[in-house]
Each structure stands twice: as structure tokens, then as C-alpha cells.
Design a protein around this nucleic acid. Structure first.
Lengths: 246, 246
DNA sequence: CGTAGAGTTGACTGCATTCAATTGTGGTGG
DNA sequence: CCACCACAATTGAATGCAGTCAACTCTACG
């Protein structure tokens, strides 16, 4: 028990969900993710138009992908939570077509393309897990498209909260249906395609319905079944039933 | 001139945009895509929940990815045009998290996973091109998210029309700014997250503005600069400036 | 204590949905 | 050849959801 006291590495934990890893591989992943450096909130990691150098791995906090229109309005296109790796194959492209930024204070590791190349060459299990990660990222984008296109405002938020709950649970960061959600209502608005004012009102109806509590950056899911039902949430797109189930 | 009379293979043409191919590789791709079979419009190729078998390659017509909610409402998440290959890595997953269907009459080739595996093993250039394809697919999903979240109805349609123009031009199917758009207004509604009625009205304003003509399944871009300006269209996410430019 | 940023509330406006009816068109069978 | 049907496109009217603008509160922080 004592040896397990240190917080489990979310990166290792996530990949283990997708493929069985050897002790050696776990150690290698631990080493790769060891030198995460702190980054302030609201800081761009890479900006649209720049040439990407290396790959970012979020170890603590929350980050996001986003784009802006000329008017300044922003659309967030993905949340990145601890354990998430961005842009595995991004080295293949010459310029970023979107930006990457922290939402909260984060710990971020930068992995250089060479290291990724080595992993791909020498560790098929890890490669397989990483490829599944990108497939899930893609599936998540599709689900978000459904969210923006065909769900009402309360359904959109409910769906987002369900998704984050499952993703954070998968890396052990949402015990008892509660997790840190260190984002502003404005961020939620830019995520769900709504206005900040309307997010505020919608959150109130979710609270009044007894589905969630959201206070001081902590989201508590009070009625998971109700929340899932409202959002019509199906977790299949996250493909969390990895090799263990098979 | 006579030998070039046969229509160029859109699949080969697309991949050549992403990587230089040898004559042998071109021939191999031609062979793979040769036995496309006709499929009626509005037919599911794979349905959500099924186990995917093989990979689909669109050679003629238009197909789409979509999801449905319990109420029956549909959200289209991608258009597939000639030359587009779906779900390169889909064999890695056990169940589809979305459906695939034709919109118009199509010619579709099915490629079995074994063939894909061979390509990946023996032809690094092709593999590279295919990987870029999936990166562009992902980037397109992100752009669509911006479209649904932060663009008005006329901007959404304008953006869609711009994107399709460029994608079809890339495979030689949009000469003189005109291309076949064999979809209903209801399909466009399910693409843009609008109602069919409102798509109708929005199309009328686009026509009245002199930006497009849309009649009998043919879209003509009358004022490309204006259309791009309205949609705030930037083509960078399609990464059409492939190896030739570099 | 003053300021800045986030959250909250109210009033007004407007864009988009819904419902319903109508028109147009191609295909089918009498 | 024409009646009829199915489906897509179009139009009108009424409703409502969500955006905008603006003011106010609350809290953390210097």
C-alpha cells in the first residue's frame, strides 16, 4: 500500500487502458513524462500558423485546442486532461491549423519527435495504444459535432460534463463523481457554442434540477443517471472498454 | 491526348497531392480502386454499433459520416467525395461509433484490412500520404466544429461550399468553379445544424447576393472571393500545399 | 480599500425553429 | 396521355430559444 501512495502517472494509466504494457515500458513512459514543467493558465503552447516542434503531454491541469475568428470569437475544439497527448503525428505537417493553450495552471511535458519515433520503432504495444488515442480523439470530435449541431444548451453542457467525468475517472482523477473543472463560464461558452450569459443560466437550470453542483472550480455530479439521460450520453465513442474487456 | 481521355483516378490523384508516388505505386493504387461497385443513394455502408470490416473508398458520388439521436435527428459529420478513404485505422476498433452512408448514387470500393496492411508494410510513400489524409480529416472535423459553434447560417453554408470546391478541385471534379452537389436541403440542414426550412431561406440569400447558383444538383460558385470573405474561409486546414510546394 | 475578473440578473431583440400549407417535378400506373 | 403519388423545394405565420447590452454583485488580490 505504501508504495502506491504516490499519485499514479495519468499518462501511463491512460495508455494501459488501451494496451497491456510491460514493466519496462511503463518505466520508459514514466521517464518521458517526468520532466513536466509548470505553465500558467491562459498561455498558448503553440499558436495557429506556427511550425509545431515536438508533442505536448498534459500531466496536470486542463488545456484545450481552439481557433479564433477574425472578430476574436473563439471556438474550443477539444479539452486536454492529464494523460492526454496532443498531435502525435503533428510533425508531419508544416504548420499548425489551430492553437493549443492552457486553461488552468498546468504541468506540461514536451516530447521531441525523435523520442516519439523511437517509441514507434521499438514498442509496438505503446504505438498501438497511441494510435487508439488518436482514434478516440477523432471520435470525440465527431461527438462534439453532434453536440453543437443537434443538442440544446442544457444537453450540451450535460454531455460535456459526462464526458469529462468518464475521461477523468479513467485516469483516476474523479473519485466519487467529483472532479476539478478549472474553467470559466466563458470557456464553457466557447466550448459549447453558446454565449457566456446563456451558459450561466443553463448551469442554473442544471443545478436546480439537482443534476450537478459546480462551485469553486469543482464539479460534482449529483445524479449521473439523470445527467446521462438528459444528454443522451453514450460512452461508446470513448472506447474505454479496451483490451481488458476483450 | 487520347491516352489521357479516361478520367483520372481520384484516389491516386488525391494521394499524389500528399506524397510523390512511383509509377508502380500508382498502378497498384489503380488496381486497388478498380473494382468499385455501384451503391444506391441513402444506403448505409456501415452502421453504428457494427464491427467494421475493411475500409471503404469512394470513387464516385458523395457519401457521409453521420450519427442519429434517439429522436431520429441526424448530424452529418463529414462528407466523403471521390478519392476519399474512410477509417484507415478503423480495424483497430471493435465497433463503429458512427454510421457511414451514401448521399447520392456512388461507386464504392471495399478494401480489406490485409491489403491496407501490405501497403503500410511495403510502401512508405503511400503510408505517409494516407496518414496525411487522416490528419486532414481530423483538421476538417475541427473546422466544422468552428463552423457549427461560431458561424451564422449563411456563413456555415458558404464555408461548406468553399471547402467542397477546393476538395473537389483537388481531384479534378470542379472545373470552372462548378461541381455536382447531389444532396437535398435536408442533408445540408443535417450538416450545418440548421433546419431544412432555414437552409432553404439561407440558400436564397446566398443566391440573391450573387455568390452561388444551386440548381439541379449542381453548385456554381459565381463569386469565389465573396464567398470566401463571407465564410472567412482559410484553406490552410486542408493542407493542400503538399510536397510539391515544399 | 480599490480594482479586476468572474458570476449573476434583467430587459430587449432577433435569428432560427416549428407547424402548416403550397408549389414544382419526376416517376408510375391506369 | 393524364391522374396520381412521393419527394423536394418554397412560403407564411407564430413561437421561442439564445444573443446582446448593461448593470450589479461577489470574491480574490494587491
Amino acid at each position: 500500500m505504501d508504495r502506491d501512495a504516490r499519485p499514479p502517472n495519468p499518462f501511463v494509466r491512460k495508455l494501459e487502458g488501451f494496451a497491456p504494457l510491460s514493466e519496462f515500458e511503463r518505466g520508459m513512459l514514466e521517464r518521458i513524462s517526468a520532466d513536466a514543467r509548470p505553465v500558467d493558465p491562459r498561455v498558448d503552447l503553440v499558436h495557429e500558423g506556427e511550425k509545431p516542434e515536438g508533442v505536448f503531454l498534459i500531466m496536470e491541469g486542463m488545456a484545450c485546442r481552439y481557433k479564433r475568428r477574425a472578430s476574436g470569437v473563439r471556438q474550443i475544439m477539444a479539452y486536454m486532461v492529464p494523460g492526454d497527448l496532443c498531435d502525435l503525428d503533428v510533425a508531419l505537417l508544416d504548420t499548425m491549423d489551430h492553437s493549443l493553450a492552457t486553461l488552468s495552471p498546468c504541468k506540461v511535458a514536451r516530447i521531441d519527435p525523435g523520442t516519439i519515433g523511437e517509441l514507434k520503432r521499438d514498442h509496438p504495444q505503446i504505438t498501438h495504444a497511441l494510435r487508439l488515442c488518436t482514434l478516440v480523439d477523432q471520435a470525440t470530435l465527431r461527438e462534439w459535432l453532434l453536440n453543437l449541431g443537434r443538442r440544446s444548451s442544457d444537453e450540451r453542457l450535460a454531455h460535456l460534463f459526462c464526458e469529462l467525468l468518464l475521461r477523468l475517472q479513467a485516469v483516476g482523477l474523479a473519485p466519487e463523481g467529483r472532479y476539478a473543472l478549472p474553467v470559466t463560464q466563458h470557456d464553457l461558452a466557447d466550448t459549447t457554442g453558446l454565449s457566456a450569459v446563456h451558459v450561466n443560466r443553463t448551469l442554473q437550470t442544471l443545478r436546480r434540477s439537482g443534476l450537478i453542483a459546480l462551485d469553486g472550480g469543482t464539479l460534482s455530479v449529483l445524479d449521473l443517471a439523470g445527467l446521462k439521460a438528459l444528454a443522451e450520453f453514450k460512452s461508446n465513442y470513448l472506447h474505454l472498454d479496451g483490451w481488458r474487456a476483450a
